[in-house]
Nucleic acid binder design. Structure first.
Length: 456
DNA sequence: GCATGATCATGC
DNA sequence: GCATGATCATGC
């Protein structure tokens, strides 16, 4: 087989060879028995590298196809119940060496040098299927498109800036838009040193977010199109949103509706108005390409004129029997809060009860606060395991049930409260009793703190 | 007045 | 019918 690294002399040759993977199952690709004998996560990539492309396995910092500067990545997707497809996971790239990455520039960074050209091999994941029966369906040479480059670059700079501030241990995937710093290691005890702090930081790798991978899959492989927010300009999401929203700070909702020709005063008036401010055709801001790619949720926050927020912010209901079996690190809540990015649009009632646009901010939960949520989650699991206490009180309105799950007073960040169609909307408890569906809520006071600097 | 339980509205 | 975001109701 000759010198490794000399097998494919041109990209075209490599692409042709890659195409032969299409339609094949891993058990038919594998010539060395890895599929049966190896449990490690990276084995599917190794099978393709070794059995299909004829390379010895290595973990060098250089690209897999060194002479072409192409890195091989094997990645799963899934079919959703509603007929769409999604990436099954984020695409994990190289581990971040905090000690050396801070001295690099974007184009000399380990991220760029190793990953600026990828050979993506997509396979379809199906629950219950043997790994050997997973099938490769598509291959693609991928380079970050020019339109995404300003945002990816800003993401990289954000990560490096955090390391420079001695906060590598506070990195979170939700900090950034397309390129994230995701946990990489056996568990949270896998740590490594950082240059500007003595606190060991969780080992992390660069990763294209799952939402970004879903976008690549849908547009580049399936040829679907979505509505772009940023059309011609070479700018990042953050800067584009700044440009559109900062000029309207201080204006009243009524003024803005008049100016933008938003006559409908429906409940979702803010969403409709903002669609016009951003100049998109549709009315669903979260469907905008850039927001989908970055997994951004838009939330309107309404502040009363006494500077309070009336309502807390809810999350999806949880199933009691499921969360008692799920450790925090694997929980849906941790995944949402660790990866989700929000765009808060803040309106406040003035002295005449008129809503004024006070400002906006991209937000994701800071690391310290995530630790508080962890406490509440684990306390909830403990109470459910011990057997939650439910007391029934008969009142004029009917029966009211009280419980001892973590409440707003117990934690500054979040609490547990009912969330169903009504009190009869129940799930089964671990002990067999039925209880009104519950979910975690962010305390209204906590949410207020996150946007306090926008409201005077 | 606030914390907590209950329910509505909407979209798929 | 259900998930999810939003909001109401009331006893302490």
């Amino acid at each position: 087989m000759g010198e490794k690294g000399a097998i494919y002399s041109t990209e075209e040759e490599l692409i042709e060879k890659a195409k032969k993977l299409k339609g094949k199952k891993f058990k038919d690709i594998d010539k060395t028995g890895r599929i049966a004998n190896q449990k490690a996560k990276g084995r599917l990539g190794q099978i393709i590298e070794e059995s299909h492309f004829g390379y010895e396995i290595n973990s060098r910092a250089e690209a897999d196809f060194k002479e072409l500067n192409v890195e091989l990545k094997v990645t799963p997707y899934k079919l959703n119940k509603n007929g769409t497809v999604s990436a099954k996971e984020r695409l994990v790239l190289n581990i971040i060496d905090y000690m050396t990455e801070v001295d690099k520039g974007f184009y000399t960074s380990s991220f760029w040098l190793k990953n600026n050209k990828l050979l993506l091999v997509f396979y379809r994941y199906e629950e219950g299927l043997d790994v050997g029966d997973y099938r490769v369906t598509d291959t693609l040479i991928f380079e970050v498109p020019e339109e995404d480059l300003p945002t990816v670059r800003q993401d990289w700079e954000f990560i490096v800036e955090k390391i420079k501030q001695g906060k590598a241990h506070e990195l979170s995937e939700g900090d950034t838009f397309y390129l994230g710093a995701c946990p990489k290691g056996k568990d949270s005890s896998s740590v490594r040193p950082q240059p500007y702090s003595d606190i060991p930081a969780m080992q992390r790798a660069y990763a294209f977010k799952q939402s970004y991978m879903t976008h690549i899959l849908r547009t580049r492989v399936l040829g679907q199109s979505t509505e772009k927010l940023i059309k011609d300009e070479r700018t990042s999401i953050q800067r584009y949103v700044d440009k559109k929203l900062s000029p309207i700070i201080g204006r009243t909702l009524n003024e803005l509706c008049e100016e933008y020709g938003q006559v409908d005063s429906a409940k979702n008036v803010v969403q409709l108005l903002m669609s016009k401010v951003f100049g998109i055709k549709g009315t669903d801001l979260s469907k905008i390409e850039e927001f989908e790619k970055a997994n951004i949720k838009i939330k309107t926050i309404r502040v009363e004129n006494d500077n309070k927020i009336r309502e807390s912010m809810s999350f999806p209901t949880f199933k009691f029997k499921e969360i008692v079996e799920t450790p925090w690190e694997e929980s849906d809540l941790k995944n949402i809060l660790g990866e989700q990015k929000y765009l808060f649009l803040v309106f406040k009632k003035d002295e005449n009860d008129e809503l004024v646009f006070k400002g906006y901010r991209f937000w994701n939960m800071p690391y310290q606060d995530l630790l508080e949520v962890k406490k509440v989650y684990e306390r909830t699991v403990d109470i459910l395991k011990e057997g939650v206490r439910i007391e029934e009180q008969v009142t004029k309105k009917g029966i009211i049930r009280k419980n001892n799950l973590p409440s707003m007073k117990d934690n500054p960040v979040c609490h547990v409260r009912p969330h169903g169609a009504n009190a009869a909307d129940v799930y089964e408890l671990p002990d067999g009793r039925l209880m009104t569906k519950q979910c975690f809520w962010l305390n209204n006071g906590y949410v207020l703190n996150q946007i306090k600097n926008l409201i005077d």
